[in-house]
Design a protein around this nucleic acid. Sequence first.
DNA 1: ACCTGAACACCGTTCAAGT
DNA 2: ACCTGAACACCGTTCAAGT
Lengths: 243, 243
Amino acid sequence: MSMSSEPPARRRPTHRKGRATLTRESIGRAALDFLGRRGPAELTMRSLATDLGVSPRAIYNYVEDRRDLITVAAEIFEADWQPPQLVPTPDRWRTDLRAYCADLRAHYRRHPGMTSLALRENITLARHPTMLRNVDALIGFYATVGLPLPDAYRACMETIRLVVGFVEFQDSLHDHPPAHLDPAEHSQPLPSWLQPDGPGGDLPHLTRLQEDTRQPDSPDTLFAFSVQILIDGIGARVAGGEF
Amino acid sequence: MSMSSEPPARRRPTHRKGRATLTRESIGRAALDFLGRRGPAELTMRSLATDLGVSPRAIYNYVEDRRDLITVAAEIFEADWQPPQLVPTPDRWRTDLRAYCADLRAHYRRHPGMTSLALRENITLARHPTMLRNVDALIGFYATVGLPLPDAYRACMETIRLVVGFVEFQDSLHDHPPAHLDPAEHSQPLPSWLQPDGPGGDLPHLTRLQEDTRQPDSPDTLFAFSVQILIDGIGARVAGGEF
DNA sequence: ACCTGAACACCGTTCAAGT
DNA sequence: ACCTGAACACCGTTCAAGT
């Protein structure tokens, strides 16, 4: 709204000592990048400050504390996601929902530990306009498919929880295996913590799985199964009243 | 196997300075109790040592490090659960599965943060005989209901993930609300991070939910919905070939 | 054999002082 | 206005020494 006749307002300098001036947003984005590169365990106020080329104290000029820093990072993380389009037509909604879940999964995988960090710091998901629009669209999708609005809301929450839970509990182990697991475990039909000891254990189904399985389920296979269960579960609920 | 004629083997003293001698198990159980009482943020080697009445160094005589401590606690946690019986008959499997999930949920809620701690320390679930038996039984249940064995395994994993995810992402917020959320939020139809700002936001479904909902879903309602989706999803997969 | 006390390197956070 | 350097209270972990 400023007229050209006014003297330009004094502006915050954009640089200082060769690097861009810090902002709350730039710090949050740096934290998010850090997470993607080095993981949640290494993200400390001091290491982030080193990355940014400032003293640790400088960060506190823009965020309250570590909790606040992670909140900003979570906000940016959520606003960064652009979901694929959802077309709730009778012949396409299942396919579209599958693609939607796959895309959400990929987004979370890009920033490992974001969720477990937020969990640990008791951070409620950040309230960003983009995130609100995305949630609203997913609820609308389920409503159009045939769920009553309260159920559409519950289905939306369950969908997000399924994807986030899968990434945190399954993908994260696969993408960043802990150091104490030797790589040979990966070719086993069952994960190491489920392998039956021997024939004496009286674990008939695990034993049969261990013997009969040629190669272990890939994470993608497991994810496809879980999403199919979700889709069929939703499908059962709209059966009859669908459209 | 020792005969009565042999001199009794020298035994480890059971007490020292008035308190019971430490063992790997007693330390793990103390850590688990601590989690239930004071939560994961306060569980440190030093605070646990104070609780036990020893110096921090003493703990290191029984566990390798903090990671190992949490592993022992996780083992005990898993071995502590006695699941309800699963009877895979045509008329009862849905009811039994519902009860099974409810019981597993209750078990995890008793020790808040156990999962997120294990996640953070990259701990694969502990390999305890009791846990293996429980997993084997659940796979057997799904197999009897009508799933091929590989699908029964996938369904077992999905079931556990659903329950654990629900406890970590939903119940934990409800049972231990973060300090910055005022209690008034609890009576709102939507959680604070989903409330639309005003009429201008163009969030039609969230706005309608906010206006039409009398009282918010209880965690139990949300959980029942998620489990029903799971059951229907499994049901769709065994339809026709059921028993 | 099992423990204590002191110490080290690290962390989040704050204070007083610089420019 | 924005930053640095030093400091404080905490943490996991280790060392040397006690009983």
